[in-house]
């Protein structure tokens, strides 16, 4: 009679424990995305666009960053409020920084659009910089490293600060 209850209880306990275990594992992942979010704020400060305008950071594709980016909403960059656009349907024309969640979103069309509309392309997917992306996050030895494709950046008429480039591995 008590067996089903006991079983359920055990199930609950194991679920709880499993949940706790997941939470602990996620701590590392969590701080990784927190860091990437804060880096994006600095990118907004350390990039020079041909025209001065308020910065919008947009996210395209699926990425855990979605949960963290709202922390940047309203932050001041050059005395102008920064906005975060998570809506996938919105056109990317109004984005100054575009974060790609998946590598297959980096199409020729998108690259062309980034060039003409001066959009800084950022992603944490592998080979992103080598395939024409601009700034790639790469996790090495427990630290966030940046890989920058300087040609792509220059073609989009963007200028990255020497401060940013000091910390980056540069592909030319």
């Amino acid at each position: 009679m008590l067996k089903p209850l006991l079983k359920l209880f055990l199930f609950c306990v194991s679920l709880c424990l499993y949940g706790q275990c997941l939470a602990e594992q996620n701590d590392v992942g969590k701080s990784e995305y927190q860091l990437k979010t804060v880096y994006l704020l600095h990118f907004a400060e350390l990039t020079e666009w041909p025209e001065v305008s308020p910065t919008s950071i947009c996210l395209l594709g699926k990425s855990p960053l979605e949960a963290y980016l709202p922390a940047l909403q309203g932050q001041k960059v050059n005395n102008m409020a920064l906005s975060v656009i998570l809506d996938q349907q919105q056109s990317i024309e109004n984005c100054q920084i575009l974060v790609l969640g998946e590598l297959n979103l980096l199409t020729k069309d998108l690259l062309q659009q980034a060039k003409t509309q001066h959009i800084l392309l950022v992603s944490d997917t592998e080979n992103f910089a080598a395939q024409g992306g601009m700034i790639q996050f790469s996790l090495r030895d427990n630290k966030l490293k940046l890989v920058v494709n300087l040609n792509s950046v220059k073609q989009a008429n963007l200028k990255l600060s020497s401060k940013l480039l000091r910390m980056a591995e540069i592909l030319e």
Binding site: L35, L41, Y68, L72, K143
Partner: peptide, 17 residues
């Protein structure tokens, strides 16, 4: 995440994940 926003670039790039 908000608590990390005021960190300088040097402090940020020095952090261990």
């Amino acid at each position: 995440t908000s608590e990390l926003l005021p960190l300088s670039w040097e402090e940020l790039t020095d952090l261990d994940v």
